[in-house]
């Protein structure tokens, strides 16, 4: 009897979760399936499908001379952006958590870069950094920090650093709010007890707050990892991965293989590999969050 009613209540939920399920099927599962299918197809440069290709697309991709550098750069991109995002978000979250007049305004100000579309933010940054009309050069020259304008996006290493700066900038709001949520779960009585016991603010933070923040730091890290890995607009708007392939990550490379090299099949195989990497991240996330629940 108990079994039956449990079954019934599961099915009964269907009407309420059906719209979400349909959305997931149409917007996630089906495109992913199409992508995987395309990665095993031979697609002409016009986009017309010519037949099955077996593993040929993957073989071509592995031989792609630009792939090794792009893979290394993607690794630096993901690790660098997530690391600096978290390092900067920790104090920002403290600032948002502290009580002072005008805290609401500060919280709103931090949210704005998150609320703005990535393409918009990236376009603004592109113009801030512009060699001829950029406001950064203008300010630096007005303060006599620079004698003549610098093209911030000219040197490939330098422009990649700027791309990372923008990526960190747009990742901070989400991350600091996740940490803020973590901060609000820190029990007051423990804090008071430690104060009474004479702990310094730094000891307080290091030995009580930070360990309690671990679950939210973990959530922030994994979600950022996925977001940053998939990030297309920042790189595409500011440098288009150029010159050559020198600021590409695997995400922009997949686009370029499809629409510059006109090889949709090879591009789909790149996307499939990206997808596999993301699945690994997600698996880690699910496993670790289960471990945390248990402990």
């Amino acid at each position: 009897m108990a079994q039956r009613s449990a079954n019934k209540s599961r099915l009964g939920a269907l009407p309420w979760i059906a719209p979400a399920l349909v959305m997931i099927l149409v917007f996630v599962v089906w495109p992913a399936f199409e992508m995987l299918r395309t990665s095993f197809q031979e697609v002409g440069s016009t986009g017309a499908v010519k037949g099955w290709a077996g593993w040929q697309n993957f073989a071509t991709l592995i031989k792609n001379p630009d792939l090794p550098n792009v893979l290394i750069r993607t690794f630096i991109w993901v690790i660098g952006v997530v690391f600096f995002t978290i390092i900067i978000s920790l104090p920002v979250a403290q600032l948002l958590n502290a009580k002072y007049p005008g805290r609401k305004v500060v919280r709103w100000a931090v949210i704005i870069p998150w609320a703005a579309s990535l393409v918009m933010t990236s376009t603004v940054w592109k113009w801030i950094l512009d060699a001829y009309y950029g406001v950064l050069n203008e300010i630096a020259m007005d303060f006599h920090l620079l004698k003549e304008p610098i093209d911030w996006l000219a040197n490939t290493k330098q422009s990649f650093v700027w791309l990372m700066v923008v990526a960190v900038f747009v990742s901070i709001p989400f991350t600091s709010f996740v940490i803020l949520a973590g901060l609000s779960t820190v029990p007051h009585d423990i804090m008071e007890a430690s104060k009474v016991d004479g702990a310094s603010p730094w000891q307080n933070y290091r030995d009580i707050i930070f360990p309690l923040l671990r679950p939210s730091l973990f959530v922030a890290a994994v979600i950022n990892l996925i977001n940053v890995f998939n990030s297309f607009p920042i790189i595409w708007v500011i440098t288009m991965g150029g010159p050559g392939y020198e600021t590409d990550t695997t995400t922009t490379l997949a686009y370029k293989i499809s629409f510059r090299d006109q090889d949709v099949g090879q591009s789909a195989s790149m996307a499939a590999i990206n997808f596999a990497i993301i699945l690994v991240f997600i698996a880690l996330f699910v496993k670790a969050s289960k471990n945390q629940e248990q402990s």
């Binding site: 440069s45 150029g242 010159p243 050559g244 392939y245 629409f259 510059r260 090299d261 006109q262 090889d263």
Partner: peptide, 10 residues
């Protein structure tokens, strides 16, 4: 088109 893409890119 692919050659054009390669030139534009590189």
């Amino acid at each position: 088109p692919a050659v054009k893409g390669a030139i534009q890119q590189q």
